[in-house]
């Protein structure tokens, strides 16, 4: 066994491709150990945390799924979406209507929400992404503003402005909140694996090429519009799945949860967490769940003030977001460790 095939089988790193090409930063040395520790911690968490804290952790995971999808648009494709709050809301309402009105079992709602939001993402992306530049942001901004009045317009289906309660999933042998946590955790794990595959696929590498050099990508035969539209549809689907999970977690939907400010919050999370980084979505989800809640206790206007300042500060001071900051800190520590041992 020789050559590249042999190297791949014996566990050498694959040749750098796409985003990783030219990346000479030190990687974390104990990859598998860290992964195993994360899995153990994630599995043990629901048995240690009190229910309310567990609920918050579940919500962080829900937002992380949405941010994974948003990162595909903003981080990998270099486009702006201000409509992911709307896709999130559509997913949430699809799940709520299926469970609450049609009496369907909850596992069906996840693929249904995914399908509907994939289609909507396609429909919004198709006109907007035929042209370069700003139109995706404009269209998605309008979508985000239109969704809440649209939901209120059909009260017999959606419950109107008051929203509607929905039965949350129940699992045998576990408390409800623990069961939901595991459902969300499993979905999030599948979502992470899906994004990894997507970004390393032919289409994912095409996105990188289109973002970094549109003209060169076109010369190489990549159709920017179709690649970007497909990526946007996937990304909307992630938001929709997150929305369905949100309904499972909170057991309640209302139009005013899914306003423009949710879309802005998600975009802020993606930017603050760090664009096109593996840890970015999780860090971003942590920030957007924790920071506004903490700020609201000071003043009702404070969450907006803090989020706005955070966005501008990150753009100026840390364009790679929190993930970039952490990576730099870790690299600095790792560079000092061997020196310390030698001394």
């Amino acid at each position: 066994m020789t050559g590249v095939r042999g190297a791949a089988l014996t566990g050498h790193r694959r040749p750098a491709v796409g985003l990783a090409a030219g990346d000479r930063r030190r990687t974390w040395p104990w990859r598998r150990a860290a992964l195993a520790m994360t899995v153990v911690a994630a599995a043990g968490l629901p048995f240690v945390l009190p229910p309310y804290r567990l609920f918050q952790v579940t919500l962080v995971l829900v937002y992380a799924v949405a941010l994974l999808g948003l990162d595909l648009v903003v981080g990998h494709s270099g486009q702006i979406s201000l409509g992911h709050g709307a896709f999130f809301g559509v997913g949430a309402y699809v799940a709520a209507v299926m469970i609450g009105r049609l009496g369907l079992p909850y596992p069906v709602t996840l693929p249904a929400a995914a399908l509907v939001t994939y289609g909507l993402g396609w429909a919004a992306g198709l006109p907007a992404l035929r042209l370069r530049g700003l139109y995706l942001a404009v269209v998605t901004f309008s979508v985000a503003v239109v969704l809440p009045p649209l939901l209120k317009r059909f009260p017999e289906v959606t419950g109107g402005a008051m929203g509607m309660p929905v039965a949350t999933p129940r699992g045998a042998g576990l408390d409800d909140d623990q069961w939901i946590y595991f459902l969300v955790l499993a979905t999030a794990a599948v979502a992470v694996a899906g994004i990894r595959n997507l970004t390393r696929s032919r289409g994912g590498r095409a996105l990188t090429a289109i973002r970094q050099h549109p003209a060169a990508a076109e010369v190489l035969g990549m159709q920017a519009a179709s690649h970007l539209t497909r990526a946007f549809a996937w990304s909307a689907m992630y938001a929709g799945v997150a929305g369905a999970l949100h309904t499972w977690t909170t057991g309640f939907v209302a139009p005013d949860t899914f306003t423009l400010s949710l879309s802005i919050t998600l975009l802020a999370g993606a930017v603050i967490g760090g664009l096109a980084t593996p840890a970015g979505p999780l860090l971003g989800a942590l920030v957007v769940t924790a920071v506004p809640a903490a700020a609201r206790e000071l003043n009702p206007a404070a969450p907006g003030l803090v989020s706005g300042l955070l966005i501008v500060a990150v753009v100026y001071a840390a364009p790679t977001g929190l993930a970039g900051l952490l990576r730099r800190a870790a690299a600095a520590v790792a560079a000092r460790l061997p020196a310390g041992r030698r001394a």
Partner: peptide, 29 residues
């Protein structure tokens, strides 16, 4: 202007959205 050199379209639009949130919160305050 501080962003203009080398900043991509995404960065600039995100900055205006940051301003949007900031100004809105300021007026509410």
């Amino acid at each position: 202007r501080r962003l203009e050199s080398g900043a991509g379209e995404v960065t600039l639009v995100v900055t205006t959205i940051g301003l949007y949130v900031l100004v809105n919160a300021l007026a509410t305050l």
